[in-house]
Design a protein around this nucleic acid. Structure first.
Lengths: 375, 375
DNA sequence: GTGAAAGCGCTAACAC
DNA sequence: GTGTTAGCGCTTTCAC
């Protein structure tokens, strides 16, 4: 009836004793074979395997976990959303976890969920996991940082500050600010005097990191830092932002914190009569699948989700299996800027054939980032 | 060091006996309290809860599963992809599963994975789950249909034929063909003589269902069935298809099997000098978040992922907890066509200065479904 | 190399 | 209403 993990007496499930009996060995030997322990003769091993095969034996994980204290599973806490970034990262994690031989337990949090991350981790601990991956892109409301939950398994925090207390805390997926900086510099290198920023919701680490990188790029070159427009990752919010930015004739380049917003932004700009890229250059972030096919094809930054997941998990599993050992060192971030058609030099530098020269139709260049034309 | 599910002797983990001792009751009573069993006096219940709280007690799930034969978890087999459809469905499932009080175990399959769905289910069975959700949008290579794996837990198959053998097999998420049919009829109703179809990869059920719906709509009205162009869901493949279709002057309406392909298609059409929607109307499928913000805003069909997940899981949990009972009946599909600006009557019926007259390329009216209608 | 005994922490059945 | 007694199917420890 029900699957045979037991259920009282008279269960139909095949147990290791059954295999042992058929193979003519002790139950312990069966256990040895299935755990790849040494000291089992080749002959015995094959007899056991045959018997198991014939009986359709499969180990009972509950019993294993009970006896050993290890579940061979890893839990992941993630935000329940189909947004490209988080979803891609989760896929990466799932793929990799399976390769490591661990099972995956997923718990979603939801924006506005009162229990939130702490609740999710609690439920994971409840289920019993050997390690936890926190891929939670947003801050808890009202949290200063530290999660108060006391953990006793290693934790891998992806793309966020390591705000937990655990026997071992690893991080992965940093370097987002560097990517944002590169995107901004690309615009600056094209000759734009400054770059506007359409940011993501500030509760998201990713949004803040991207903003930081943008600022850093501008600051490093002594440029103006124009006011930030904040969106909510959606194309709709990008569209709204675009209507605002279109009114400011001084805007020649925008770095949007994700591709969806960039697409909405471009639409609003176009509707307002500001051509992209001729009048305004736009850079996105993520490189979503359609990015190359919208009009104009979007220049954007690709995030290395799989690489981050792979490296992080490798280090987490290492920590699980070698509790005493030094954690494996992280590797540096890589930046992957994809230049397409949505970015070109600013109108001013394209006026006359002499392309480096800026004729300054407006906003004469002031030596060191003086007040600019925009608002 | 390791979490205290017990690890031999000397474990630091709090056990139910410890709670019992502190509360001055028997261990079984603690068990009763935590299982919400009746016949525990309010007074005892509170004492137990207090003691548990003080000790930081948490039930050991491995022991529970071993003793009861139930893991209180549900497994889901899904294709490892960040594609909007599958990812959204998975999110829906996760959300709902958690609400039901079950834990979720996810196993991804990968296109081209030799083990495939059978392997995934096997691993789930190995882990021990009380029920399985198969949200696997594609056929196994070389499989006629039936998966040979013998299951002994109830199964919910989403958006696919019920090709497994299990004590109870439920399905959910049908009606995709109806949605496709509605999309096609929308185009026909606008006056197009026929509708071309940009299909998804034929290994996907969803692709075949959408094609069937398209055919049904055409057949029902006695229209020509033009040759199908097949893509791979990506905007890139839509672009390729668009180049092909652009050469055929007779094409006035295309139903694309998903929004990504529709976007690529529109781009190719536009580049080839065929305006959308003036020359060619395009309908997509999915209603991805950017659909309302591309140019032109895309008419599409929204899939009720959450509703499907919710209803399916409700029925699965019912089947798990009432093995003997009749399965809950499924409810009918709903169709949600979102009409935006990418579809208009064909050129022939707009000969005279109707509204489609293209005066300006910018600031087109956004009929309903424009930015504000997004959600 | 292999086996016997002793739990892991809980739930199930039944007694009181 | 509550306690007692047996396992669930493994891993662990230690003996041989």
């Amino acid at each position: 009836m029900t699957r045979g993990t037991g259920r009282g007496a008279g269960s139909a499930a095949v147990r290791s004793v059954d295999v042992a009996r058929l193979a003519g060995v002790s139950q312990k030997t069966v256990s040895r074979v299935f755990n790849d322990e040494p000291y089992v003769s080749a002959d015995v091993r094959r007899r056991v395997l045959d018997a198991a095969e014939r009986l359709g034996y499969r180990r009972n994980n509950a019993a294993r976990a009970l006896a050993s204290g290890r579940t061979h599973s890893i839990g992941v806490v993630t935000l329940g959303t189909a947004l490209y970034g988080p979803a891609s990262l989760l896929m990466g994690v799932e793929r990799v976890v399976r390769d490591t031989g661990y099972a995956l337990r997923v718990v979603n949090t939801m924006e506005g969920d009162p229990a939130g991350v702490a609740g999710a981790m609690d439920s994971l601990l409840d289920q019993g996991v050997d390690g936890i991956v926190i891929s939670e892109p947003i801050d808890e409301q009202g949290h200063g940082g530290e999660l108060s939950l006391r953990l006793d398994v290693p934790v891998l925090v992806i793309a966020a500050p390591p705000s937990v207390t655990a026997p071992m805390v690893l991080t992965a997926g940093g370097g987002v600010d560097l990517m944002a900086r590169t995107a901004t510099e690309h615009l600056l290198d094209l000759g734009h005097l400054t770059v506007h920023h359409l940011a993501g919701p500030q509760r998201w680490y990713a949004a803040r990191d991207r903003m930081k990188g943008w600022q850093a790029a501008l600051t490093a070159q002594g440029r103006d830092i124009p006011p930030v427009v904040v969106g909510d990752w959606s194309a709709a919010s990008g569209y709204e932002a675009g209507r605002q930015l279109a009114e400011d004739g001084g805007v020649t380049a925008v770095f949007a914190a994700n591709d969806d917003m960039a697409i909405g932004l471009i639409r609003a700009l176009t509707e307002a009569g500001r051509r992209v890229p001729e009048d305004v250059s736009v850079v996105g972030f993520d490189d979503i699948p359609v990015a190359a096919y919208v009009t104009p094809p979007l220049t954007t930054v690709r995030q290395p989700f799989d690489a981050v997941a792979q490296e992080g998990l490798k280090r987490l599993v290492h920590a699980i299996e070698n509790p005493q050992a030094e954690p494996l060192p992280p590797s540096g971030p890589t930046v992957d800027l994809i230049v397409r058609a949505s970015t070109v030099p600013p109108p001013s530098s394209r006026k006359t054939p002499a392309r480096g020269r800026r004729t300054a139709s407006r906003a004469p260049t002031l030596p060191d980032g003086g007040p600019s034309a925009d608002r």
